[in-house]
Simulated scan of single mutants.
Amino acid sequence: MENAIKTNTLVGNGKKMTLKGYYKSLPDPTYPKKEFAAELARRCNVSQATVKNWIMYGFRPFNEKHIEIISEMTGIKPEDLWND
């Protein structure tokens, strides 16, 4: 972080920095793997534990629509999703 953020004055407007202001000024984190799994769970209407089983343990969904969604989201052909 730059020193400007570590001062008690908001850059550009001269107002005092508060804890809430400091927190809001921090960059939004991104977690691509977590966000992908959460979106996949949401789109398939399943739990994130189910998605983890698909990804980490190689379980194949019984519902073919879920396989279509995974293929669409990843760009991987359905027949190649679990060939490793």
Rank of each mutant, 00 (worst) to 15 (best):
3 N>A: 15
4 A>D: 08
4 A>M: 05
5 I>P: 00
5 I>W: 02
6 K>V: 01
7 T>R: 15
8 N>E: 10
9 T>M: 10
10 L>N: 01
11 V>Y: 04
11 V>S: 03
12 G>D: 03
12 G>V: 04
12 G>H: 01
13 N>S: 06
14 G>I: 00
14 G>K: 03
14 G>P: 00
15 K>S: 08
16 K>S: 14
17 M>K: 09
17 M>W: 00
19 L>F: 06
20 K>W: 00
21 G>K: 12
22 Y>N: 09
22 Y>R: 06
23 Y>S: 06
23 Y>D: 01
25 S>F: 01
27 P>K: 05
27 P>I: 06
29 P>M: 07
30 T>S: 10
32 P>Y: 04
34 K>E: 15
35 E>L: 12
36 F>M: 10
37 A>I: 08
38 A>E: 15
38 A>V: 08
39 E>V: 01
39 E>Y: 01
40 L>H: 04
40 L>E: 08
44 C>R: 03
44 C>N: 15
44 C>G: 14
45 N>W: 00
45 N>E: 14
47 S>A: 03
47 S>C: 01
48 Q>V: 08
48 Q>I: 09
49 A>M: 12
49 A>P: 02
50 T>R: 09
50 T>Y: 00
50 T>Q: 10
51 V>W: 04
53 N>S: 12
53 N>H: 08
54 W>L: 13
55 I>T: 11
56 M>S: 14
57 Y>S: 13
57 Y>I: 10
58 G>P: 09
59 F>E: 13
60 R>G: 00
62 F>W: 03
63 N>A: 09
64 E>F: 06
66 H>G: 08
67 I>C: 12
68 E>A: 15
68 E>T: 11
70 I>T: 11
71 S>W: 09
71 S>N: 11
71 S>D: 07
71 S>L: 12
72 E>G: 07
74 T>M: 10
74 T>L: 07
74 T>E: 08
74 T>P: 10
78 P>N: 07
78 P>K: 13
79 E>Y: 03
79 E>H: 04
79 E>C: 00
79 E>K: 09
80 D>L: 10
82 W>H: 13
82 W>C: 13
84 D>K: 13
